[in-house]
Each structure stands twice: as structure tokens, then as C-alpha cells.
């Protein structure tokens, strides 16, 4: 009988990660770029929970807690920076800041 296996969840996670990668590379809106990294976070979190369930190890769920705290920190700091940059030039276009490439 058909049954969901570990690699089905891994496949969905990989697809989410790839689509988020497309968004990160194509969007030029600073907020949208960070939103697309959150999609990639979701794919990774799904992978970790699936590993946790199929390997019977709660460490995967612990890692997702850490992943969520990292995502929250990243969102707070990144959006603070976006607000700061937006106040300087009144635009969210990432190409406007291309001189910051170092």
C-alpha cells in the first residue's frame, strides 16, 4: 500500500528551498528578498521535522526551535536595516545600493 516515506518530505523541502532561491535572485525589492529567505527556512524546517519523526530523534525538533529563533532575529535586524535604508533614499530597490558591494 502506498505510504509516505521520509524522502517525500525531503523532496517537498528541496522544492521549497529552490523556489525561495529563485525569488531571492529575481526580486529586487529588499523586503521581498528577505521574505524569500523565509521560504527557504520553511523548507529546511520541514526537512528537520521529517528527520526527527523518521529517525525517532527529538533533536530535529530542538533544531527547529533554534531555527525559529534565528529567523526571528534575522527578521527583526533585517527589517530594521530596511527601514533605515528606506529613510535615506525613499526606495526599496536593492540595485540602488549596489555601491555597497565592497
Amino acid at each position: 500500500m502506498s505510504q509516505i516515506e521520509l524522502y517525500h518530505y525531503l523532496a517537498v523541502g528541496a522544492i521549497l528551498f529552490g523556489i525561495g532561491l529563485v525569488g531571492f535572485m529575481t526580486r529586487r525589492n529588499l523586503i521581498m528578498m528577505f521574505l524569500c529567505t523565509e521560504i527557504m527556512f520553511q523548507g529546511v524546517a520541514l526537512n528537520l521535522i521529517a528527520f526527527s519523526r523518521f529517525h525517532m530523534n527529538p533533536a530535529g525538533q530542538s533544531f527547529v526551535i533554534f531555527l525559529l529563533s534565528i529567523a526571528a532575529s534575522e527578521a527583526a535586524l533585517a527589517l530594521g536595516l530596511v527601514v533605515l535604508l528606506f529613510r535615506r533614499r525613499e526606495t526599496l530597490n536593492a540595485d540602488e545600493w549596489s555601491e555597497m558591494q565592497g
Partner: peptide, 10 residues
Amino acid sequence: IMIAGAVGVV
């Protein structure tokens, strides 16, 4: 839904 939502965001 997850994949369609991701495409929608992008």
C-alpha cells in the same frame, strides 16, 4: 499548497 504558495510569493 506549500509549493503553490511559494510560487505565489515569488
